[in-house]
Design a protein around this nucleic acid. Sequence first.
DNA 1: ACGGAATAGTTGGCATGCTAAGTATTAACA
DNA 2: TGTTAATACTTAGCATGCCAACTATTCCGT
Lengths: 151, 151
Amino acid sequence: MKPDPISSEFLESLTKVSRKIRTAFNQQVTAHGLTYPRARTLLRLSKKQNMTQSELACELELEQATMVRLLDRMEENGLIERRADASDRRVKLIVLTPYGEEQAALVQSIGEGLRMQVFADIDPEELRASIALFERISANVAEMDDIHVPA
Amino acid sequence: MKPDPISSEFLESLTKVSRKIRTAFNQQVTAHGLTYPRARTLLRLSKKQNMTQSELACELELEQATMVRLLDRMEENGLIERRADASDRRVKLIVLTPYGEEQAALVQSIGEGLRMQVFADIDPEELRASIALFERISANVAEMDDIHVPA
DNA sequence: ACGGAATAGTTGGCATGCTAAGTATTAACA
DNA sequence: TGTTAATACTTAGCATGCCAACTATTCCGT
């Protein structure tokens, strides 16, 4: 009694393509002394600096505790700096160092190169259609969580 | 100078939906004392037992070393057993214990329940279209790897 | 203003995931 | 046949990721 073999196949295919892309990206950035999570953090910071660790964690969908240690190593590597916030002594604002800016630009160009190759022969309309599908699925998952964790 | 903002949006959306689904599934199985990788392993074993660790790792797209420790803990938890292979003393064949079979069935039903909720209002045709898209993207990524690692 | 709740960051402990290096066994070939 | 290469598993060390518990601050209701 399979309720829906297609949905199962969809999940497998989704998982695989997602992992393949992440792995490919990771290989390219590790060749430049970075890792996938650090690259993601750099990209986010290159768009908006002076975020708190919590804000950054939220945007990257990581736990605060995970963010702390990721930033620890990025700080050791000279990619970012933690700055005190004058108005709230609990907070630390994250900024890129000049070296961090440089690496962020590198990551950006790696990402663009990768997208150009991977999506070269793909119709944008198909991407749009899939994005719409993803949003509906995401909404369904979120709704499901709400049932178990209402408030 | 963005080469194509849609592909970027697609990647973000793909990453997010993939993580959301995995997290949701993980929450359900942890409630039953399991983890996502163990659940995945149980499912695969419930379809085909007596695989070697390498075969299993390959099917789950994990490294052998990762598989070893995953199986270590599953063995400690009484979910699986390692059996010697008469014809090749290097090999260990993995089988489910009765408890493992039981848990595999549980995981199966959790997965079905989750899919029913998440894909309830989704047109199977859309899923099929996305699967086709995923396959093409996967092929592009694989081809890209080949350029850097030909043989 | 004060005491407790909420928030920001940290730390500890665990489970994955990887690569690289090591051991035992089997295969291959000269 | 005997040396070398390949294969299966393991171990070591690192980087994420999580949750739970802790400290330091700030907020909020009375």
